[in-house]
């Protein structure tokens, strides 16, 4: 554990339970294609970011190691971008989504810490996304996530999400879901 991590304060058991429940609910909304409700969980200032992972030598790392804020990304979205993606899924002419892609999202290794302000929470987790399409296509993506949640009454909003896949080459044709 580095010195930065020692400064992190774990939240109470009750708050941890609430956050886990919220994130599980978020994933169920995706699996049930309830995109409008899912979008409503995003803060107006959301930065939803999944940088491209670059396979580089240790002596040639980027500003963030295997990724860089100024490089290409799978997602580098604000609320408008996310709403456009949702709009695309919702079009009857999204031919490739009929028959629908069947999704199972799951989350594990959840760690919840207090954020920089009282209303913020920092959440580390590991995600797994399994998609099946058509008769026999199956795609699995694993990765780590770092979320910044803000308290919103009895629930939360997602203000920042960083999604890190280990793969430098995506082993399938697309990511037609959220992670």
């Amino acid at each position: 554990m580095n010195s930065k991590e020692q400064q992190l304060t774990p939240v109470s058991m009750e708050m941890h339970y609430k956050v886990s429940g919220f994130l599980n609910m978020e994933y169920r909304l995706l699996d049930e294609e309830r995109f409008t409700e899912w979008l409503a969980l995003m803060d107006e200032d959301i930065h939803y970011w999944m940088p491209g992972i670059e396979n580089r030598r240790r002596e040639n790392l980027l500003s963030e190691g295997f990724y860089d804020a100024n490089h290409m990304a799978f997602f580098d979205d604000g609320k408008l971008d996310l709403s456009r993606r949702v709009a695309r899924f919702s079009q009857p002419s999204a031919w490739a989504e009929n028959p629908a892609t069947r999704n199972v999202h799951s989350l594990s290794n959840v760690e919840v810490f207090e954020g920089e302000s009282e209303s913020e929470l920092l959440v580390y987790s590991v995600f797994q996304s399994v998609r099946s399409r058509g008769q026999d296509e199956e795609y699995v993506i694993f990765g780590r996530r770092r979320d910044l949640l803000v308290k919103n009454g009895d629930s939360f909003k997602i203000r920042k999400r960083l999604i890190l896949m280990p793969n430098a080459t995506l082993s399938c044709k697309n990511i037609n879901t959220f992670l």
């Binding site: 670059e54 860089d68 490089h71 080459t169 044709k173 697309n174």
Partner: peptide, 11 residues
């Protein structure tokens, strides 16, 4: 070119 290269796989 912008930094980075996104690689994916199609059948």
């Amino acid at each position: 070119f912008v930094g980075g290269c996104i690689r994916s796989t199609y059948e």
